[in-house]
Amino acid sequence: MIWYTGLVLAVAVERLAELGVALRNTRWSRARGGRESGRGHYPAMVALHTGLLAGCLAETALAGRPFVPRLGWTMAAGVIAAQALRWWCVATLGPRWNTRVIVVPGLPLVTGGPYRWLRHPNYVAVAVEGLALPLVHGAWITALVFTLLNTVLMTVRIRCEETALGAAATPSPARTAGGADVRA
Rank of each mutant, 00 (worst) to 15 (best):
R32Q: 12
V101R: 10
W117A: 13
A91S: 10
G38Y: 07
L118G: 02
A61I: 08
C56E: 02
A77K: 08
E36C: 08
S37G: 12
V110S: 08
A22G: 04
G106S: 02
G112Y: 13
R32F: 09
L9H: 08
L16V: 15
V103W: 08
P114G: 03
G40N: 07
A63T: 15
A82R: 02
A91I: 02
F67M: 08
A77Y: 12
V90K: 02
V46P: 04
R70D: 14
A31K: 07
L85H: 02
G40D: 12
W97P: 06
P43A: 07
A44G: 15
T60Q: 10
L109P: 13
G106Q: 00
P105E: 10
G51T: 01
G64L: 04
R116L: 00
V103K: 05
A12T: 04
V13Q: 09
R116V: 01
V104Y: 11
A63C: 15
E14F: 04
G51P: 11
M45H: 14
Y42N: 07
R32C: 02
V79H: 04
R96K: 05
P43S: 12
G106P: 03
R70W: 15
A91E: 08
W87N: 04
L19G: 03
F67S: 05
V46D: 05
T60C: 11
G64C: 12
G106I: 02
E59G: 13
A61M: 04
G55K: 03
C89S: 13
Q83C: 10
V68L: 12
G112F: 09
T99V: 09
N25P: 03
W28C: 11
L62K: 04
L93V: 06
L53T: 08
Q83K: 06
R30K: 14
A76F: 15
R65G: 13
W87D: 03
Q83E: 15
N25R: 00
R24H: 09
V103L: 07
A76V: 13
S29P: 08
G113C: 01
R32T: 07
L93M: 14
G34P: 07
R39D: 13
V13R: 08
S29I: 05
V21S: 13
T74R: 07
Y42T: 09
V104P: 09
A77Q: 05
N25Y: 05
G51I: 11
A82L: 03
R27C: 01
G20W: 05
W88G: 00
P66R: 06
R15P: 01
R86G: 03
E14C: 00
F67N: 06
Y115F: 15
T60V: 11
L118I: 10
A63L: 15
S37N: 12
V101W: 03
L118W: 13
G55C: 09
V110Q: 03
G34N: 01
A12W: 05
G113T: 06
